[in-house]
């Protein structure tokens, strides 16, 4: 197990290194240059432009700049924002809590509602099953941005139950502020998870070991819990993991819609302003989160399924 985790962390480091290069390169391929943003459309003399380029090292060869940036990142220096002149690391640190709260809340909603709805639909069948199938189709079809607007207009504007914007401070205030954003963010993923869970439960219900257990007189509740739901959790774990990892990226839309000061909103602004340092840092964080979540899922997988051998031969 330990060896497996260490090996996977090594692989993650390689992934991060590779994606850092791609991320760094992509910004230069995109149209527009940072110095043109810095001068903000004013006409400046070529000398001023040259001094700006020199100050930010924009005239150095690409690989050299990449190397400077990479060594900086490795020592914890993510650079300085072009627009606000703030340290990117502290900028990021100030934005992370909101995004963490938002995605954790949404992840909880996905697990609770998606998995529970799927299990109930798969075990009970009938009208409940139809309702869950229908609900998940709707949940999946509604675009997140539209869902956000709809939730806001119904629950914030019309009913006045929840605040329209802001992330709140303190636990209960945060929960209150983040409920609608989290619901909007979780909706499509919860729909997918519910559907996959239902299918997995239905498939597992029809396996021979389940009918053997029932034919031995093991009570239905025990069979459902120990044999059906537990086994069905294998595919569900994978799909929940992928969806939770994707939440961090999906948060950008929701943060924008609800004007939350999270990492996603930071990313959108930074892209619009060609704020290289910030975009690179945020993208790197997204990749890292994705990798870590997937690692956690793989470990969980081995916990659930004894046939999965972590770390190869000697695990």
């Amino acid at each position: 197990m330990q060896r497996f985790v260490i090996r996977r962390l090594g692989a993650l480091a390689v992934t991060l290194l590779f994606s850092s290069f791609v991320i760094y390169g992509a910004m230069y391929l995109a149209p527009g240059t940072p110095e043109s943003f810095l001068v903000q459309g004013r006409t400046v003399s070529p000398e001023v432009l040259a001094s700006i380029r020199a100050q930010y090292g924009l005239d150095d060869p690409f690989l050299l700049r990449y190397w400077h940036w990479l060594t900086g990142v490795l020592t914890g220096d993510l650079g300085e924002s072009l627009t606000t002149r703030q340290d990117v690391a502290s900028l990021l640190a100030s934005r992370i809590p909101t995004t963490v709260w938002l995605t954790a809340y949404a992840a909880l909603l996905i697990v609770v509602f998606g998995v529970v709805a799927g299990v109930v639909a798969g075990l009970r069948g009938g009208l409940l099953d139809t309702a869950v199938l229908l609900g998940s189709s709707v949940g999946f079809a509604v675009p997140t941005f539209f869902a956000a607007l709809l939730l806001m207009s119904v629950f914030s504007v019309t009913l006045g139950w929840f605040p329209v914007f802001g992330a709140g401070s303190g636990f209960s205030d945060r929960i209150l502020h983040l409920t609608l954003p989290a619901v909007a963010l979780a909706l499509p993923a919860a729909a997918v998870v519910a559907r996959i869970t239902r299918t997995a439960v239905v498939e597992e219900r029809d396996t021979e070991h389940v009918s053997v257990a029932l034919a031995r007189g093991v009570p239905w509740r025990t069979v459902a819990r120990r044999h059906i739901v537990r086994n069905a959790m294998l595919p569900v774990t994978t799909i929940v993991g992928v969806n939770i990892a994707a939440l961090v990226a999906g948060a950008t839309v929701v943060e924008h819609a609800f004007t939350l000061d999270g990492v996603g909103a930071l990313l959108i602004n930074a892209v619009q302003q060609k704020d290289f340092a910030v975009v690179q840092a945020v993208a790197l964080v997204l990749v890292a989160v994705f990798g870590v979540v997937n690692l956690v899922i793989d470990v969980l997988y081995a916990v659930i399924d004894p046939r999965v051998q972590l770390g190869g031969e000697s695990a």
Binding site: T207, E208, H209, V212, A213, A215, R216, R226, H227, R230, N231, I304, D305, P306, R307
Partner: peptide, 15 residues
């Protein structure tokens, strides 16, 4: 009590 053809299918692989 039933004894079926394929014991591998009769036992839950996760337990």
């Amino acid at each position: 009590a039933m004894i079926s053809q394929d014991p591998r299918a009769a036992l839950n692989p996760l337990l």
